[in-house]
Computed example of a mutant assay.
Amino acid sequence: MSDVDLPRDETPVKRGRGRPRKDASLVPITKEAIAAEALKIIGAEGFTALTMNGLAARFGATSRALYNYVSDRQDVVNMAVELFIRSTPLLEFDPVNWRDTVKKFYRVSRALYRTYPWVAVVPITERVVVDGGPRFIEMMERLLRFYTEMGFSMPQALALVRAFSRDIMSFALQADYYFDRVPEAQNDYISRVVPQAWLDRYPEAEAPLVRESLTLPGMDNDDLFEELLQMRILTIQAMLDSLPNAR
Rank of each mutant, 00 (worst) to 15 (best):
Q74D: 13
R211W: 00
A111W: 04
E126Q: 15
K22C: 05
L160M: 15
F225D: 00
L39T: 05
N78E: 04
R166Y: 10
D241W: 10
M150Y: 08
A61G: 02
Y147T: 08
Q174R: 15
K14G: 12
F171Y: 14
I190K: 09
D100A: 15
I190V: 15
R145L: 11
V194Q: 06
K40L: 07
D222R: 11
L173N: 06
L112N: 04
A207N: 02
E212D: 09
A120S: 13
F84M: 05
G133Y: 06
F84T: 01
R19A: 06
G54T: 06
F179Y: 11
E149G: 05
T215L: 07
L143E: 13
Y177K: 12
R19H: 05
V76C: 03
L234P: 01
M52S: 10
F152G: 03
E149R: 14
D220Q: 04
E82S: 14
M140W: 14
V108R: 14
V4Q: 03
E206M: 09
I236D: 08
T115V: 02
P217Q: 11
L209P: 00
A246G: 07
K14E: 08
T11N: 02
F59N: 02
R8Q: 11
G54M: 08
E92P: 02
M150K: 07
R135D: 10
D222Y: 11
D176E: 13
D94S: 08
V161D: 11
I85N: 10
F179K: 10
D72E: 08
S25W: 03
N68C: 07
A65D: 01
V4W: 01
M52E: 11
K40Q: 12
N78L: 05
A163S: 15
E226K: 06
I233S: 02
D23P: 00
F171W: 10
Y113N: 05
R21T: 09
T101Q: 03
Q237I: 07
F47N: 03
G60D: 06
Q74M: 10
N53V: 13
G218C: 03
N187H: 15
E184W: 03
A111E: 13
V121P: 00
N68P: 00
A36Y: 04
A24N: 02
A57V: 05
T30E: 01
Y178P: 00
I233D: 03
S87W: 01
I236G: 06
F93P: 00
R17M: 07
R192S: 11
M169L: 12
D5L: 09
F136C: 09
V130Q: 07
P217L: 03
M79L: 14
L26Q: 08
Y67S: 09
I168T: 07
V76F: 03
V81H: 01
R17P: 00
K103N: 11
L229I: 11
G151F: 08
